[in-house]
């Protein structure tokens, strides 16, 4: 999962670094001010522990009993776990940054690519892991299930982001990348999820005071919804590049079976964005159409919610 140097062109690496620096600055401020006291020395020590516990190997065939996986092992990342324990995704950003920086000295992940690695594992992993955990908790799912789902998403979403970044860099095609990284991290995510459940359960027994228990219920639904919207928007923007140019199954069937009727029925209705795109703008138009459509759906939602409140 760690991108090495040379995979991403310098310009793009700089952009990821810039995003990472903004988040790192905010996370340092969080550790200093938003916790009850100045937690910076404590987080420094904890980062050392996080680095060391990432060297604990877990045999892959504990998850999937396939003999082929004889010597394969993986380790926990812990982005979702730390975000959930400290009831803040900033904890994950801070700890993952420190761990990744030291890991790059060991050759795990590049120096120019570190920005992208922090973005994937720290920011996307931490934020998405945390807010999906909160989201599941709000749906009053059992805590263990919510933990598992949060941790799994904190592995699979960075993998998708990674595939997208490598595609932007011209290093790996998007579809194969999503399939390859998605499968790999999807399986590793099951392990991460199981480990998160076990570790969280053990910590809450040993030191219940570490875990900011009631902070979870205070997170506003709006924040969770915003995190969800970011994910869906991200996936939606990636979708046109992933989608095939051939008509999908339903369209295909419809055009074969009711070719004439469909034209006479549908033709009078002119869609705003035919073929999910704005004519004359190419792929950009497709992305724009999706963003506009997405915004429209949210506006309609909000409008409907308002109306229902009044009634």
């Amino acid at each position: 999962m760690h991108i090495p140097d040379g995979y991403i062109p310098l310009g793009q690496a700089a952009v990821y670094w810039l995003i990472a620096i903004i988040f790192i600055a905010r996370s340092v401020k969080w550790a200093r001010n938003d916790m009850n006291e100045d937690m910076i020395p404590l987080f420094g020590v904890l980062a050392a522990g996080m680095f060391v516990l990432q060297t604990i190997n877990i045999a892959a065939n504990l998850l999937i009993p396939v003999p082929m996986l004889g010597g394969v092992s993986w380790h926990v990342v812990g982005a979702a776990l730390t975000a959930i324990i400290f009831a803040s995704p900033w904890a994950a950003v801070l700890l993952m940054t420190l761990v990744l920086a030291v890991q790059s000295l060991f050759g795990d992940g590049g120096v120019t690519a570190m920005g992208a690695n922090i973005l994937n594992m720290g920011i996307i992993g931490g934020f998405m892991g945390y807010y999906s955990f909160i989201g599941f908790c709000k749906l009053s799912v059992k805590r263990q299930v919510a933990l598992f789902a949060g941790a799994w998403l904190s592995m699979i979403l960075p993998a998708l982001a990674l595939a997208f970044e490598l595609w932007l860099a011209g290093t790996f095609p998007l579809k194969q990348g999503v399939l390859l990284m998605g499968t790999f991290q999807g399986v590793a995510g099951i392990g991460e999820g199981l480990m998160t459940v076990i570790v969280f359960g053990a910590i809450i027994k040993a030191r219940p005071d570490i875990i900011a228990g009631d902070a979870h219920s205070k997170v506003s639904t709006l924040k969770v919804a915003a995190a969800g919207a970011v994910v869906f928007l991200g996936l939606a923007i990636a979708a046109p590049f992933l989608a095939s140019s051939n008509p999908d199954g339903l369209q295909q069937t419809a055009s074969v079976v009711i070719k004439n009727e469909i034209n006479s029925v549908i033709a009078p209705i002119t869609p705003i964005f035919p073929n999910y795109s704005i004519p004359g703008m190419g792929e950009k138009g497709r992305v724009a159409a999706i963003v506009i459509g997405f915004a429209a759906i949210i506006l309609i939602w909000l409008g409907a919610a308002r109306l229902m409140k009044k009634v």
Binding site: P41, G49, I198
Partner: peptide, 18 residues
Amino acid sequence: EQVGYTISSMFVRSYEQG
């Protein structure tokens, strides 16, 4: 579970050291 306990032990110990 044993691996999980090792990890949580490392986490709690480093937190307490902090």
